[in-house]
Design a protein around this nucleic acid. Sequence first.
DNA 1: CTGATTGGATAGTTACAGTATCCAATATTG
DNA 2: CAATATTGGATACTGTAACTATCCAATCAG
Lengths: 216, 216
Amino acid sequence: MRISELARRSGVPVATIKFYLREGILPAGEARGATQADYDDGHLNRLRLIRSLAELAGLPIAQIKTVLGLIDHPDADLFTTLGKAISALPPYVEAIGDEHPRARAAIEHLGWTYDETFPATWQLERALAAVEEAGIPLTDERLDAYGAALHPMAEYDVAGAPGGAIDADAPATDRGAAARSAAVRYAVLGTALYEPVVVALRRLAHQDVAARRLGA
Amino acid sequence: MRISELARRSGVPVATIKFYLREGILPAGEARGATQADYDDGHLNRLRLIRSLAELAGLPIAQIKTVLGLIDHPDADLFTTLGKAISALPPYVEAIGDEHPRARAAIEHLGWTYDETFPATWQLERALAAVEEAGIPLTDERLDAYGAALHPMAEYDVAGAPGGAIDADAPATDRGAAARSAAVRYAVLGTALYEPVVVALRRLAHQDVAARRLGA
DNA sequence: CTGATTGGATAGTTACAGTATCCAATATTG
DNA sequence: CAATATTGGATACTGTAACTATCCAATCAG
């Protein structure tokens, strides 16, 4: 299809599509002449993905570029790739030295793996500092409740990864580039796009509980 | 304290503090003359809260104004107030008509209260559409796993609200303005500031599960 | 008394995410 | 086949948000 049809089918203005092409987050169509290029459903899906990452996950263009780059050219190590993907997601916080006392205490309390090089560790530290400053600190009891709820969710997510992607028993060399790419895609997009689902569900759970208590 | 000390203690530049005063999200200090105003710890805390809402929760100034306004002047009905607070939180999506088929199916599957006027319902619809388009749709099985994890979390949160704020048994008229204000503060800030905590914990849970599977 | 600081107003800056315009080279159509 | 429309590509422009800087007269501190 031509650019105007891509625009019509996606609901994104032609000028914006050209902008994404310039930014290098949407691959160029196949040139059919000096004034014609051919776009396919791959371009359409990519375009929709860009909009979701921008509007829903709230990513700036630069971070969308990073995330799509990870999917297009995955590192050998899925664990490293996922770390990079998480760095590209909000909130954007930098490590303050290598001390993350609140995060460390919380993670060790839960008995999880503490690694001060994980971006999520810095994000947790920052988030805990904020709730503390606001006068609603995270108690150990609440932390236990959250940990007990979230860990099984993570287990479920990882277990459902395609091709047992994150599975120590499967030799990495056995998997072809296509399978590895699918695993990365699942992990990266799962992180970026499922978070809004989880957040929305959590908000709805609160409203459900509140509604029941009010007897409405 | 004077503005320069407020700036020094908060780490926020004087010019930025003046900007927040202009925007009406930080109350003016008590005037002590034409060129002097006095700021107290309340201003310092408010300033820190503004930074947390901006950098951590990712709220634009206009939405920070809304959220702080809800805390400062709570509605009579906490349920309504919370709805307004959630509207002020990202992602910002508008209802597409009043049909939210994916969200409705999901919520009814879980047996929760479906209300198409909840902003969180629209957010869920949008989030589900995005994961579907990306080729990783939410299965009923996964939905059950998420629901089973999130509902108890919400129960815990609501049960721990100060003064049994959301409690049908406690007559609303018994509670003074101070208690109601505390309840609103807890509910609104709890929603805005605890989400980053939950998201960070979820990311860490994934990394913990992945690390264990890789045997690292 | 004198230099530094303040509140308050106004103007300027930077970054981001598009939009709009132009143009020569095709396509398409009547 | 001629007239009209569309395209890719380059360049320039716009709008918004969140600061940041400058100015000024008043006044506070030493």
